[in-house]
Design a protein around this nucleic acid. Structure first.
Length: 430
RNA sequence: GGUGGGUUACCGAAGCGGUCAAACGGGUCUGACUGUAAAUCAGAUGGCUCUGCCUUCGCAGGUUCGAAUCCUGCACCCACCA
């Protein structure tokens, strides 16, 4: 199966400008680019797909360019947005671009070579334009009636519907000119003839293709991948507590792993195809296995493992899986050292207590639950214990008279407390 | 501006002088079940030095042995009339 057919088989091709894109790609190594939004100093699951697509291109021998929108980020892409965006300051953008750049190294190979990846910032070639120059050289090539036909514009100007009457500023309206010019610039300077993006980028991509034709009579190509959505229509990569980030400081490897383990049965097949590099045959057999025995959730585990390895490395997988065994498999939490325990329970809140409280009679369980933040009052703590919902180091507390003593330390100085099924907290004695 | 109705615990909503820490529903929490799901079932749901005590029913006073319940004033909300 050739590269482009594989992309299609995995559901990664939503639209493309040319029927023969597959043959064009097969003919010789090409250069492809995709843009990334620098709205934060870390990428999140929403941008994961773009990285993975570029990675696939690189593995197939093509040369990937990741463009961070240092310039376009200052404007704000209206595509898929219902309201005007907040503008970022120059300083924020620079910090964000730096953060994103370091994360990309996990996905793309930047070592010198024929298919060496590049990371470019469009501010470098856009920042120097004067307004008059830009209007003369670029703006002149954009018929407004064509611009008005773009979905990203139409949806915002939609008259009547209260929801869509948000309108848009001239600034956002101009966004597509900048992105269109990016493509033309990359075609000129990097021989980049293909732009890939999420399906919401289609209008911006074709704007670039049109511009190249007008300015240089050059034929460029574009393709989009489908937006990663769940079967209920909502976006992938969001939880109640916010986005899933690639930065381990923002989203721990455990939390990241858990997100994928919990993907719905209906969505996991698509995720495996689009996001992982597992061979299609294996994914097909996982589909069959899932139909047979959904409860085992082998697909989800393979998905979680594969993505966690890609984003957080082998050590990230190990910590995430071990933490999972503790949280959901009732695994032992004794005899660990502070460092390992701290890693496993990275997402868990912690409280502190003086070491002296453990000696003598020990620390009453009710006090301990409050100190760890698992109960707001003694009555609540007592209730939890009486209902059988309190656990010390994963072992149920049998009575209110239970106290914590040095024997209950899971590591040098920490005891693991739990309320109910999955509310954990650490109590550190110092 | 006038007249009437309202303001109850996380939310909605009963209660109209003692048996009210306050019915009921939702939410939340705990347990059982389970696929770390959904549904379902059971229990809990102001605080404490806990067979008792303390603080809560818009706010401030008052009547009474005793008030969330009656009276007065104030604040906010709703309805109808101007």
């Amino acid at each position: 199966m050739d590269f482009f057919k594989e992309l299609q088989a995995r559901g990664l091709v939503h639209q493309s400008t040319d029927e023969k894109l597959g043959a064009w790609l097969a003919a010789k190594p090409r250069t492809v680019y995709a843009g990334f939004d620098p709205t934060a100093d870390s990428l999140h699951v929403g941008s994961l797909l773009g990285l993975i697509v570029l990675r696939r291109f690189q593995q197939a021998g093509h040369r990937p360019i990741a463009v961070v929108g240092g310039a376009t980020g200052m404007i704000g892409d209206p595509s898929g947005k219902s309201a005007e965006r907040n503008l970022l300051t120059r300083e924020q953008l620079e910090a964000n671009v730096a953060g994103i750049a370091s994360q990309m190294r996990r996905f793309l190979d930047f070592e010198p070579g024929p298919a060496s990846a590049a990371l470019l910032n469009n501010f470098d070639w856009t920042g120097g334009w004067s307004y008059l120059e830009f209007l003369r050289d670029i703006g002149k090539n954009f018929p407004v009636n064509v611009m008005l036909q773009k979905d990203s514009v139409k949806s915002r100007l939609g008259r009547g519907d209260a929801d869509n009457s948000a309108g848009m500023s001239y600034t956002e309206f101009s966004y597509m000119l900048l992105q269109a010019y990016d493509f033309v610039h990359l075609a000129q300077t990097e021989s980049c003839e293909l732009q890939a993006g999420g399906s919401d980028q289609w209008g911006n991509i074709t704007a670039g293709i049109d511009l190249a034709r007008r300015m240089h009579a050059q034929q460029l190509y574009g393709m989009t991948w489908p937006l990663l959505t769940k079967s209920d229509g909502t976006k992938m990569g969001k939880t109640e507590s916010g986005a899933i980030w690639l930065d381990p400081q923002r989203t721990s490897p455990y939390e990241f792993y858990q997100y994928w383990v919990n993907v719905d049965d209906a969505d996991v097949g698509g995720c495996l195809r689009m996001l992982t590099e597992l061979p299609l045959e294996e994914i097909v057999s996982l589909d069959a296995q899932r139909a047979e025995n959904a409860a085992e959730r082998l697909s989800q585990k393979r998905l979680a493992e594969s993505l966690t390895r890609l984003v957080h490395g082998e050590e990230g997988v190990a910590v995430a899986q071990r933490a999972t065994a503790v949280f959901f498999g009732g695994a032992e939490v004794e005899g660990l050292d502070d460092r390992v325990l701290g890693q496993l329970f990275a997402d868990v809140p912690a409280g502190e207590c003086p070491l002296s409280t453990l000696s003598g009679e020990g620390l009453p369980i009710v006090e301990a639950l409050i100190a760890a933040g698992l109960a707001k009052s003694k009555a609540e703590a007592r209730r939890t214990v009486e209902q059988g919902g309190a656990y010390i180091n994963n072992r149920r507390v049998e009575g209110l008279e239970r106290t914590l003593t040095p024997a209950d330390l899971a590591s040098e100085s920490v005891t693991v407390l739990r309320s109910g099924r999955k509310r954990y907290a650490l109590l550190r004695f110092c």
